[in-house]
């Protein structure tokens, strides 16, 4: 996987991690906390420190974020951690051959009630 700079992540996300005062409120109610290797507050801290690579490699963290905006809504400093997760995820899937979800897998997971919305959303989040 190609290297991605901290500046690139900040540019894509529009997030300024320096605004964070390290209260951890974003991670307090993150519904995917248990599933994620790095938690929302760690995304903010690690981007600030320029530790991008471990985040790029952490599929558990990138693909379990539900984009539910709980961290964005509750942050007292308007940091918007979800946008950092999204930026890192994009930095991965925009690279050649890094799509997380492939069309071939859809028939396996399909059931008759599954709304289109789920498939469309998953492709938006997991593939380019």
């Amino acid at each position: 996987m190609a290297q991605v700079s901290k500046e690139e992540i900040i540019r894509i996300s529009g997030v300024n991690p320096l605004k964070c005062m390290r209260c951890g409120k974003c991670s307090a109610t993150c519904p995917s906390y248990e599933e994620m290797e790095y938690h929302p507050h760690q995304f903010v801290y690690m981007v600030e420190k320029g530790e991008i690579e471990p985040l790029l490699k952490s599929a558990d963290s990138l693909y379990h974020c539900l984009s539910c905006f709980a961290c964005v809504e509750r942050c007292p400093r308007n940091v918007e951690p979800a946008k950092l997760v999204e930026a890192i995820r994009l930095a991965v899937i925009r690279q050649q051959g890094q799509n997380h979800l492939k069309p071939e897998t859809i028939p396996e997971v399909l059931d008759e009630d599954l709304p289109q919305q789920a498939i469309v959303s998953a492709f938006r989040k997991y593939s380019k």
């Binding site: 519904p31 379990h64 709980a70 979800l101 997971v109 789920a118 498939i119 959303s121």
Partner: peptide, 15 residues
């Protein structure tokens, strides 16, 4: 007002 699991259901039913 908390998330149902959303699109992640596609690859992680458990979650």
């Amino acid at each position: 007002n908390e998330c149902c699991g959303g699109y992640v259901t596609l690859e992680n039913r458990e979650l």
